[in-house]
Design a protein around this nucleic acid. Structure first.
Length: 606
RNA sequence: GCCCACGUGGCUCAGGGGUAGAGCACUUCCUUGGUAAGGAAGGGGUCACCGGUUCAAAUCCGGUCGUGGGCUCCA
């Protein structure tokens, strides 16, 4: 923790205090409401409420009720109640909490189990503090502003209502969560709301539709994307990139089927540990077949298709494999979370002595990719197991978990790669390094991943013959630096705001003839570009050139050679680039040369 | 999966108990115009689906499906 303490930030206090004011406002308007928790968050704050039952369903807030609550908050701010802190011992705190009928932790029946849990938490603390403003008193570690009047009323806005499980546990009752945002001034609030609007403009779901990259169809099913021709180009280019990079790095390409007998996934451990994430089985002649959620067992079988010598290691098997996972309906999110995906997958089988070098080579590979794409904002996370999940979520072998986690940690340190460690996020078969990125609207996703697997080589009884003629088990590294096509392209759409670099752009050149008289010339130019391997077309419609240029701009096409009578006569074009700049009197030869060169340079600008 | 909201032509959206609207896109015609929308005419929707209420439902009610926000982090 070398970051500055966030609680010292003045907006943290404002937001935290606003959460208390929100709770007070809700209690004034809904005296029977009970409180969950209410922390400050990135752009504001939230508070959880239980409104009791309405017949056999929980009572909820409608969006129209947010206005009323917000007005009440502003009134409380106007009343300028001071925030008064006081300390209490554990037993005093428990008595105080018991005197607050609205605190959820202590309500009879609903959450008795929590009383003990919280009691223990209370005992463990040296000092317990309460904050009171006006009639509202809350267990809270603070800090707050001096009084409610210090919260800028016109920098405050309630944003949304959402359901949230008490303590994040889906077996617990669902509470009503109100989100708000808070800033110093109306102007800052405005800027934040504008930023949200801007972020929506580069949302891959919106751009993906506008740029005709992908679509979904209800007849096909949720989470099952259809790639339109423009998306097909992006996929082809990414695969071409992966093929080249992996070839140089000594990978071999393989292909494996989409379905398999149940036995394979029993052996791999997927069925015991991963069943919920899989589509249900298909029965055929008394036998169950499954759609694969991962490629690893197939690659293990390829490894195991004949005896292996230490001389063959590291053996690197790569495949852009198509996998299907039954993600919960509420988790689906555009291209970022889907049920059908094509993964930039590969498995590296190596000896323990080779592990560090191989693991770091993979880390370097994705750092190289990120550099190529200009992705600067990402973080690496070492995801480890949790002792409580052994046997349920994770393969039950504590010593191997500790050993492989240490291997990864050491490799990362040896390579001087910064990372942070998060418990209880590992794959069921081993620890992993996840590369975390944010979507344009701020949602965090794992883009690339690099995982160690000690479990499956054992369950598949994989082996190689070492230098001494003995059978030895290899380690397996699973890696997917380019993620899945779905998530990678979803991310790249947002990263480039749809303006892909020339090598990736679905259409690289749109020729704009000014009059019909120039159409033949334009058509011949397109043919030349096609011959050179460039994705080009001509807009030979009968609109004015302005409309043609506008259309090409909207599709964010990098190059727009404009052709009028002058150009036809001179055998040149007037090249307009996507950024609006122009190069006049460019000969056709020079144009083709320029575009071919730019399209070949993956890191190039316009 | 759960809570909330939304679902009107290909797209963006207005309307709203009494025989469906706009702009863009599409088709045709006119226009041949130098760097982000030339003009006119035309075609296109059982208002997501199923059921209920009503003399009458796109509109009200219920269910289903789909989409979005949230439910993990953000101490």
């Amino acid at each position: 923790m070398d970051r500055p303490d966030p609680t010292s930030h003045p907006l943290y206090r404002v937001r935290h205090s606003a959460a208390h004011v929100l709770a007070q406002a809700v209690l004034e308007l809904y005296p029977n409401a009970r409180l969950g928790i209410g922390p400050p968050i990135e752009h504001g704050f939230y508070y959880d409420f239980d409104l009791g039952m309405d017949g056999d369903r929980p009572r909820t807030f409608g969006p129209e009720e947010l206005d009323e609550i917000e007005q009440r908050m502003k009134r409380i701010i106007g009343e300028n109640h001071p925030f008064e802190m006081r300390s209490a011992s554990a037993s005093e705190a428990r008595d105080l909490l018991a005197s607050q009928p609205y605190k959820l932790e202590l309500v009879d029946g609903l959450d008795r189990g929590e009383v003990g849990e919280d009691g223990q938490e209370l005992d463990a603390k040296v000092e317990i503090t309460f904050y009171r403003q006006g009639p509202f008193d809350d267990l809270c570690r603070g800090p707050h502003v001096e009084s409610t009047g210090k919260i800028p009323a016109d920098g405050l806005k309630l944003m949304s209502v959402a359901g949230a499980y008490w303590r994040g546990d889906e077996t617990r009752p669902m509470l009503q969560r109100i989100y708000g945002t808070a800033w110093y001034t109306r102007k800052e609030l405005r800027a934040h709301l504008d930023w949200l609007e801007e972020a929506k403009k580069r949302d891959h779901r919106k751009l993906g539709k506008e740029l005709e990259i992908f679509t979904f169809d209800a007849d096909i099913g949720p989470g099952l994307p259809l790639w339109l021709p423009n998306g097909g180009v992006l996929i082809d280019e990414l695969e071409k990139l992966a093929r080249e990079v992996e070839f140089k790095a000594g990978y071999q390409r393989v292909r494996t089927p989409l379905v398999t007998r149940e036995g394979l996934f029993l052996k791999s451990g997927h069925l015991p540990y991963y069943k919920d994430g899989m589509f249900p089985p298909m029965e055929m002649q008394g036998e169950d077949y499954y759609l694969k959620p991962m490629n690893c067992p197939f690659h293990h079988k390829i490894y195991d298709s004949r005896p292996r010598s230490y001389r063959e290691l590291p053996l690197r098997l790569a495949e852009y494999g198509t996998c299907h996972r039954y993600e919960p309906s509420g988790d689906l999110f555009g291209l970022m979370r889907v049920r059908s995906m094509q993964m930039n997958d590969a498995h590296i089988y190596c000896s323990e002595a080779q592990f560090e070098r191989e693991f770091l080579a993979v880390v370097e590979m994705y750092v190289g990719y990120f550099k190529l794409f200009g992705i600067a904002e990402f973080s690496m996370q070492l995801s480890t197991h949790h002792a409580r999940g052994l046997g349920k979520k994770y393969v039950d072998n504590a010593p191997l978990w500790l050993k492989t986690e240490a291997l990864v940690r050491d490799a990362m340190r040896a390579g001087n790669v910064p990372f942070n460690e998060v418990a209880d996020e590992a794959a069921f078969y081993g620890p992993k390094i996840d590369v975390q990125i944010k979507s344009s609207i701020g949602k965090e996703f794992t883009l690339a991943t690099n995982q160690v697997d000690f479990a499956q080589p054992a369950s598949f009884d994989l082996a190689f013959i070492n230098e001494r003629g003995e059978r030895e088990m290899p380690l397996c590294i699973h890696r997917a630096p380019l993620s899945t096509h779905e998530r990678m392209i979803g991310f790249l759409i947002e990263h480039y705001a749809g303006a892909f670099p020339p090598w990736l752009a679905p259409e690289q050149v749109r020729v704009v003839p000014i009059t019909d008289a120039c159409n033949d010339f334009a058509q011949r130019l397109v043919e030349r570009l096609h011959d050179a391997g460039i994705r080009a077309s001509a807009d030979t419609g009968n609109e004015r050139m302005n409309a043609k240029i506008r259309r090409a701009q909207l599709f964010k096409i990098p190059y727009m050679p404009v052709i009028g009578e002058r150009e036809v006569e001179a055998g040149t074009v007037a090249l307009r680039k996507r950024d609006g700049t122009q190069i006049k009197d460019l000969t056709v030869d020079r144009l083709v040369e320029l575009v071919v060169q730019k399209a070949a340079e993956r890191a190039s600008e316009l």
